[in-house]
Every structure is written in C-alpha cells, then in structure tokens.
Design a protein around this nucleic acid. Structure first.
Lengths: 346, 346
DNA sequence: GTTAGCACTCTCCTTTTGCGAGTGCTAATA
DNA sequence: TATTAGCACTCGCAAAAGGAGAGTGCTAAC
C-alpha cells in the first residue's frame, strides 16, 4: 500500500488535474501544496507512482495524469468527505418548489439540477411500476374489440393500457375477472404477479376454462412492457460540452450516440440492491464507444422500496467527491419528495 | 425577376453548395453543369446575383454561397419536385413494422427515421389530446382524499390524472357528476369543453350548487395541463454533427441549448392550420442563438383533425427538396398509421 | 454580348523555428 | 541514506514563414 507521502502526492495530482484538466508537473505540486519537499523528490515519487500504475504520462516531458487505478484509489481512500452547504440545499429545494408542477416534471427537473450542479450528463430512471404494489385494476369500455385496463398501485401510480378483448368475451366477464384478480392479488408487487397469477387464480376461474385462458391473455397484455416504457430522463448534454475533453467533435458524436442508445443507458442505470452511491471509473468494457468516462450512480426509494436510479456520466476526470455528495443528497431528496407528495398531490 | 440564365446559375450554385458545403466558383459551375457559357460569363452573372442579394461572398477570391434570399427563391421557384423511391417507402414501412410495438414508440421512431433519412435534427410533437373528442370519463378510487380520473377520447387516447376530492364529496357524488358529464359532453372536442361546460351543465347540476362548484373544480383539475404534457420527441443530434457546419463546438453547444429549451421548440412546432409543408429559412429572429438554421415543418392528422406536427431542423444549407418530400411523406404515413391502428391495436 | 487572359487577393496547408514546461540523471548536501 | 540542486535533453505547441491553389475582377479582343 502507498505510504503517506505518496498518498499526499497522488491526491494533490488528482485534485489539480481534476480542476485544471492539464497534466501536472512536479514543480506545480511543490508550489501549490506545500508538502515540505522539493520538486526533485516529488519527481522521484511520481516516477514510482507511475510504475505502480496510479499515474500516466501522456508523453515524455509532460506532467502526469491519473490513471483509472489512480482515481479508484482516490475515491476509495483519499477523497475528503464533502458536505453540501446549507445554501445549496436550499437552492435545490427552491428549484423544485418553483419548477415542479406535475409528477413527471420531478424527474426531468432532477436531471436538470444534477447536470447543472455537476456540469455533467445526468440520467434519471423514473420509478419502476413493476416494483410497486398492485392495488386494483379495472376494465373500461373503448369499442367492440378493445378495452382500457387501468392499473392502480398502492403508491398511487396509475397505468393504462389498451388491450384487445378476445372474441366472445363480454364486459360482464371482464368485470368478474377484474373482481377476482383484485381480491386475490391486491397488495402484491407487480413483478411477482406474473408468476403467482397462474397458481393463485387458477382455482377460482378454473370452472370456466375459456374464461381463464382469456383472462390470462388479457392480463399478460396489460402487464407486459412496463419496464421498457419506464421513462428515462436525460439532462446536461450542453453542460458536458463545457468539459475540455469534449472539445473533440468525434468524442461528442460518440457520446450522443450513446445517449440515443436507450438500451445501453438502461444497462448502465440498472439498479443494484445497494443503497450506496457507486462509482465506475473509465471501464471501457461497459459503455462501448465512449472511453475515459466514469459513472456515478445511486438509487432512490418510494415507500421503502428501491424503485429507480439516478446517475451522472462524465469524463474520468470528474469531481468525484462533489458528484457523489450531490447524488447522494438528490436521491434522498427525491425519495422524500415522492413519498411526501405520494405522486399526485403536487 | 431573374432571367432564365440567372436562374439556372443560381440553381446550380445552390445545389453544388448544398452537396459540398464549399463556396462554389465560376469554373466549377461551367465544368459540372454544361450551360454552354464560359466561366467569365458566369462570373459576371454571379456578380449580378450578389448585387441582387441572392448570393454572398465569404471573402474576396472565394466562391459564392447562397444567401437566405437565395434559398428562399430556390425553394419557391427553382427546386425540382422530388419523388420518394419505392424502395425508400418500403424501407420506412418495414422500419415501423419492425420497431414499433407500442403507441408511444411511433413518435420516437418517426423522429429517428426523419433524422437518419435527412441527416438532421427532427422533432415530433405527439397528438394534442385537447384536439380529440371527449368520449367519457370515470372516477376511480385512490384514497380518502384523492381519486383517479380517467378520460377516454373517441380516438382511443386515454389520459389519467389524479385529482383531489373536495371535502365532503362522496364517491356516489362523483359518479353522478361523471354520468352527467358523460351524457352531456360526449363527442365534443376537449379544448372546447372548458367553455361549454359552464353553460351546458349548469342547469343539470344547479339544483345542488355545492356539487356543481366542486364538480367544476375537479374537472378543471383534470382537464388542465394537457398541452404542456404533450410529449415532444427529438432525434438526430448525432446526425446533425455530421454536417460540416457543426464542426464548431460553440455552434453545437448553442444547438443543444436550444434542444433542451422545450418552450422554444414548442413555439417552432406550433401548428399552423395549413396542411402544406412549410419552410423557414435562416431567420435568426425565431430561434434565438442558433443562426443560419432552417426549419421545415408539417402537420399530421388523426381522424381528420390536425393533431400534431413534425419538423426537421438543420443548417440553412439543407437539401430542401429531399427534406420536404420526406416530411410530406412521413406526415401522411404517420396519419395513416395512427388512423389505422387507432392508437392501441399495435 | 461573350470570352480569353492576366494580375491580384485571400485562405489554407505545410514547414520551420523557438520557447517553455517538464523530465531523468548525476553529483553534492544534510 | 534520503533529499535536493543543477543541467542536459525531450516534446508539444504556437507563432511565423512560405508556398500552392482557387477564385475573382478587369481589360481587351472576338
């Protein structure tokens, strides 16, 4: 493990590089942070740090820049814990207060706040309805062949879907199906319904096998495709362009390509069970095409359940401390708002 | 008005410039388009066209580029009518067939098709529910204080909104209100309901003034904020970057700023009554910040009503003919798909 | 009215040059 | 033994210099 002096130097280099985006040299370190040692000594240490893999040299006679490993070490061991100032917190609260008039806007505005405060691209995955608890459903008439199914969850999320009614099924039948389902499945989380449906309800509707079959069909229609639909909110494309690493049009193009590739984004955002803010540094494996980018990610809750996630995407040269703090705060705040207003009272 | 030869030259210059994005000189014109005149003659004509305001010269000893006025003239008088090839049409049909599984996807995919085929930014404004015809509404229970209102239109659009129930109002009352409203207002377009509501329903519920008051309140809650919510779909940010005019990061930044400014976009997209494809060329007045951009815009219908619009945004140097043809076709296609599937059968 | 010829202009690309930042090594120092 | 000063060396970068090429406008001839 690194000794104290190496740590100090590594930390100094990273923080300088993060703020200036230029390779930092031994002289700079010696001057700015008075570590009580001369540039020459720092040079030796830097050479060591490079051999150990924490630093890189763009070319001979340039300063050093942190490697992914360097950032990792920084995030894990060196970073000073940051606090949000009272003012920042107040600003954000006020922002929500003034901007958010409707539920959907919460997520868009969250993305906006995140991207402006962190100067990076932000992503917000809206609550996953399938993690919510089923309350009841109801069939409403639309025309001869189709009906609107309304699904309401305990949390107050409402989902509507148009389904085709199988030949020969009357509205009375639909109501019976609805009643049956509602009494049986109320309170169960939606993503478990598909599985439990078969076994639970079977007995009840089994008397009428055709009815059972069709009910199943209709329900499947109604319950599928929830997650794909789940909205993804993005923000900060223009903020990202402020970062010097995006001077190069080609990188911008790759980035935008990524942002239009929803599947990839959803993969990135896919939620862990963990509550902690997680950091992924520059692994190219994950986000094809965009190199030297990091993702800071966190989840938020609704009624105690983890239902969505939030992330910031930027160059590896990122203010990890700041971003993590903000993200952590925003998640709590988001959970709070959602729980407080229970999706509808705004 | 321009004589025949000037027209030919102007047209040649514009088409060359549109395809190569480089100022075009007299020699080039003489070589590529054999107009039977020498470069020198063309030079003279070009000088005239510049004086008349159709052309501009970036600097002495560069070729000429079209001015906004030049493009305008081209679009209005010179452009050759274009046709979509059978293959293109088939490609697009197949694209929809394979990609669109849900109604909302129609719009996103339309934006995608538009941006890839035109290599520009595209915008699609989803149907405006307030232009649709009210079919019925229904109150569903949520909790003690709130209820879900479901509004269904003739076209099959479904809208749900959570409303607060005024103190002392029972579900029975809500049902009575719903019945009353449904019988009275069915078939009326949603944007007219607010006005007619007062006069029409008054008599019926007037017997119970409190009921009337609260019904109004609830309804107003349910009917407002439709249009802001109306989704706006964008596509092609990365395609736009292929255009040489966006080599400059600053322009890209401005463009992205514009794209994140929903209000402006909605202004741009705001629908005329007209069915024709309309072209706005490089007027800076309209879209602040982004200069030298043009917008080609068109509307589409649902059940005969104009309900939404579609546009392509790009540099003034745009293949107007192609873009207009594609846009025209896409609108028809969109109308067709929407009408055919009546929003739900996909 | 049209065209060939020519001098002139301006941009853009390439090459050159010089500077500055930063390094690594060596020898002196605490 | 660890640290530091000194120095030669390496690179990248930015400004300067030098064409080359494309295009123009004008004039004079056809």
């Amino acid at each position: 493990m690194l000794d104290e002096r190496k740590r100090k130097i590594l930390r100094a280099i990273i923080e300088d590089y993060v703020s200036d985006a230029e390779p930092v040299g031994s002289r700079t370190i010696a001057k700015k942070h008075n570590l009580g040692i001369s540039p020459a000594t720092i040079r030796n240490e830097m050479a060591d740090l490079e051999v150990l893999g924490y630093l890189e040299q763009p070319h001979t006679s340039a300063g050093r820049i942190p490697s992914a490993k360097g950032y990792r070490f920084y995030v894990d061991y060196l970073m000073a814990p940051r606090q949000m100032s009272k003012k920042d917190i107040l600003d954000i609260s006020n922002w929500y207060q003034s901007k958010v008039k409707r539920v959907e806007e919460i997520f868009q505005e969250t993305a906006k706040v995140l991207s402006t405060t962190t100067n990076n691209i932000s992503m917000v995955l809206a609550p996953q309805i399938s993690k919510c608890f089923f309350k009841y459903l109801q069939f409403l008439p639309l025309d001869e062949r189709r009906s609107v199914v309304i699904i309401v969850t305990n949390e107050g999320l409402v989902e509507n879907k148009i389904v085709e009614i199988p030949e020969g099924l009357m509205y009375d039948d639909l109501h019976r199906i609805a009643n049956c389902i509602n009494t049986r499945l109320s309170g169960i989380s939606l993503d478990k319904i598909k599985a439990s449906l078969l076994t639970e309800i079977q007995q009840d509707i089994l008397r009428d096998p055709i009815l059972f079959e069709t009910a199943l069909q209709v329900l499947q229609q109604a319950l599928t495709t929830d997650d794909k639909k789940r909205r993804l909110y993005l923000g900060g494309a223009k903020e990202a362009l402020n970062q010097p690493e995006f001077r190069d049009i080609e990188r911008v193009k790759k980035l935008l390509t990524l942002l239009e590739e929803e599947k990839l984004l959803r993969d990135i955002l896919y939620m862990d069970k963990t509550d902690k803010v997680s950091v992924t540094i520059g692994q190219e494996s994950h986000f094809t095409g965009v190199n030297n980018c990091s993702v800071v990610k966190a989840t938020y809750r609704l009624d105690g359940q983890i239902v969505g996630s939030v992330a910031v995407l930027g160059p590896t040269r990122m203010e990890y401390g700041k971003v993590m703090t903000i993200l952590d705060f925003m998640c709590c705040h988001l959970s709070e708002i959602l729980n407080k207003y229970k999706l509808g009272q705004l």
